[in-house]
Design a protein around this nucleic acid. Structure first.
Lengths: 200, 200
DNA sequence: CCTACCGATCGGTAGG
DNA sequence: CCTACCGATCGGTAGG
């Protein structure tokens, strides 16, 4: 704890640590975060970094949670006011492509990096990453269901299949951008989305 | 070096280390490999593990190379005799889906894990991973080009676009299998491939 | 391929 | 939120 400072100051310190952790972890992975490196870069002691969280794992969970909030604010929230259905799904897909193309996280899609890092392990990090990704896929599926029921997509469309394929387009785009810096990749992603959702 | 043993024995030791490293790195990542853990699990000393390679990085590069050989033998080689074109591309896609579904690497697609781990960093590992993934995408594109020229795919098909989308299907499949153990994912992947390549 | 060892860094804690 | 410290482990080496 930090008895020499107010709760508000402590919250700022905590947020600073988390934000810096998000940027680093998107590049180095959540396991690549180290308390000592964060402390050096932020001009804090190691005790000052780990104190507000209690453990490295709790810090990693806080970093993951913040990253999902940033993603939601950038990709979902601008489209949230639209009525559910095909048009909202298309708007979300475009926001998603834009999010990845702008490299909001320096290391690319945060949840993809975290999911690939933790998918085959057990523990709280695995569970938190799986929950975050599962919620996102369910969100996509829900709008796809509405779109199919409303006749905005072919009746034979399987909403889970559509979410599966949209996710694949985003993952491939992310890899082309981060691994190869491929400038043509956003156009390819848009073309793939158009094939899945139709024009407009 | 190991002056007390023959070159053949040394090669076996080296291969044992690499094979074990492949299995571990598919779960923990290439950076998650540690010389001490490998030594314990193989009943070797740390010097015995690192000696044949000279450094951890050289060991990581050897592990990555071995993983790409296993992938090629499992996914590409069984289809290599077929004439280039749409049918071979479909056979390779089916082998790829089978490869991921059988969990040949316990942590899922090795190159995807390595690419996500190293995509935003610099150095020999980044370069080796990018080269491996680039070769694979070029292989897919080459067969797509032949297929388009032969009229086996619509003339408007962009071969690079097709490789981009096939890659996305495989990445999404890999995530569904490893993160969620989703038994429906292989069928979804096959359906997506059929939409991209046509039936048969 | 082993023993014995090196300096550096890891996550974390006691006490203020 | 800091100093000072803990045992464990990191990659790697000398010498046999």
């Amino acid at each position: 704890m930090s008895p020499r400072h107010s709760a508000a100051e402590a919250a700022v310190t905590r947020a600073t640590i988390v934000d810096h952790g998000v940027a680093r972890a998107s590049v180095e992975g959540l396991e690549g975060l180290t308390i000592g490196t964060l402390a050096d870069e932020l001009g804090l002691s190691k005790a000052g970094v780990v104190g507000p969280f209690g453990s490295k794992e709790a810090l990693q969970l806080a970093v993951l949670k913040r990253a999902t909030e940033i993603f939601k604010a950038d990709v979902w929230d601008p489209a949230a006011e639209l009525p559910a259905g095909r048009k909202r799904l298309a708007a979300v897909a475009e926001n998603w492509i834009s999010h990845l193309t702008r490299r909001v996280f320096p290391g690319g899609c945060f949840v993809t990096t975290a999911a690939t890092e933790w998918d085959a392990r057990e523990g709280p990090l695995h569970d938190a990453v799986a929950a975050a990704q599962g919620r996102w896929l369910a969100t996509l599926r829900a709008d796809a269901e509405v779109a199919v029921r409303a006749g905005e997509l072919p009746r034979a469309t399987d909403p889970a299949q559509l979410a599966f394929e949209l996710n694949g387009v985003a993952m491939s785009l992310n890899q082309m951008l981060v691994l190869f810096d491929d400038k043509k990749a956003p156009a390819r992603a848009r073309r793939a989305v158009k094939r899945l959702l139709g024009p407009g």
